[in-house]
Amino acid sequence: MTQNHCATEDQQGFKLVRVSGEVDLSWSQRLRKTILDALATGRPVAVDLSQVTYIDSSGIAALVEGFQNARGKGQRFNLVAVSKPVHAVLELARLDRVFPIFANLDEANK
């Protein structure tokens, strides 16, 4: 099982938030804070979801909050490498067309 984890790094001009494991109520607040902190830098933010095996509505809420926060400031907020389980939940919540989703950072930079 992948360990629940999230961390920010600088990648190709983005603040990239890498997330792994099962995102649920037990630590989604940590993800929320990490995303908001990344946005606070004013730089374009991307969230890498390739290692996420499960996400619940509290994790989705953290992403939605980040997206709205960025949109308010005209800041870029992208999801990259969205794993199948995450995509399935985004689809179920009809959010798959709301977020700007890219296969990787290169695509996001085009």
């Binding site: 619940d56 509505s57 509290s58 809420a61 939605v64 997206f67 709205q68 179920l92 919540a93 009809r94």
Partner: peptide, 18 residues
Amino acid sequence: DLSECRPGGLGINLIDSV
């Protein structure tokens, strides 16, 4: 209403659609 994009209240929505 799902067209309204906000962070909360999504859980019951997911339950309802599943």
